[in-house]
Amino acid sequence: MDEIFGIPAPLLFGQLLLGLINGAFYALLSLGLAVIFGMLNVINFTHGAQFMMGAFVAWMLLHYFGIGYWWALLLAPLIVGFTGVVIEKTMISRLYKLDHLYGLLLTFGVGLIIEGLFRNQYGSSGMPYRIPPELQGAWDLGFMFMPVYRGWVVIVAIVMCLATWLVIEKTKLGSYLRAATENPALVQAFGINVPRMMTLTYGAGVALAAFAGVLAAPIYSVNPQMGANLIIIVFAVVVIGGMGSILGSVVTGFALGVIEGFTRVFYPEASATVIFVVMAIVLLLRPAGLFGRA
């Protein structure tokens, strides 16, 4: 058997693939954060709770209404996105004129409250959610056993990232959004309803988090803490990619998934820390992040 750095090659290829899969989650979550920060200038610390809500809503749809995975993939982001709209309308919109820190504290608090409510209602150990029958099974790739569901996650995540990027960079709606970030008063003078656009952007970012939550439900434990565990890594991804950069968050998400995957082979104890080491190095050399504008 061929070996690379003393590790069997098949194992290394396997880790590369797994890294890409985890990177897909990082990319999808950091994408939502980047969209919200880019357009609203709000650091959305509720994102982890909204990711968790996506998974929980999928479980509730199945448990209470018998609605399965495929509809949940559509409905959960809509439902959670709507709660995002309510939060933006009633709370976040009041903070746009203040320092970033206020938005950060508000969203952090809202996130803690949501997690607490779910924990009170459903306990901490989590709910079962199975892989849909259409996506069960696995392919034997020779070097590893690749579950169909993980392949699906990567493909959907890439499609979603591309679609979001296209909407923001290539459509008229996207150009309004970008213009509104630069100069809201001017855009409003052209007859565009900027506050509503902000609200819908926040709703869309939240819906992306919920979508990632539904994707995660069959493979991770669906519990109230699931978002809190992931969100810190995702914030590091956003910082490395450059706050607010869509392309940056996607590319960094996948890249860091791979780096983390390799660390798990060479030095597993450090696999939770390696992302923050990368973050520190990037911040020293390029304070605005890899893709950010200084």
């Binding site: 194992l11 396997g14 880790q15 797994l18 890294g19 899969i21 985890n22 590893m144 991770y220 699931m226 565990n229 992931l230 810190i232 890594i233 995957g261 798990r264 082979v265 597993p268 104890e269 450090a270 696999s271 939770a272 820390t273």
Partner: peptide
């Protein structure tokens, strides 16, 4: 690493 590990597939493959 504890806490903070959610994906165990890498370790399971090892």
């Amino acid at each position: 690493p504890f806490p903070g590990t959610t994906d165990f597939s890498s370790f399971l493959l090892q």
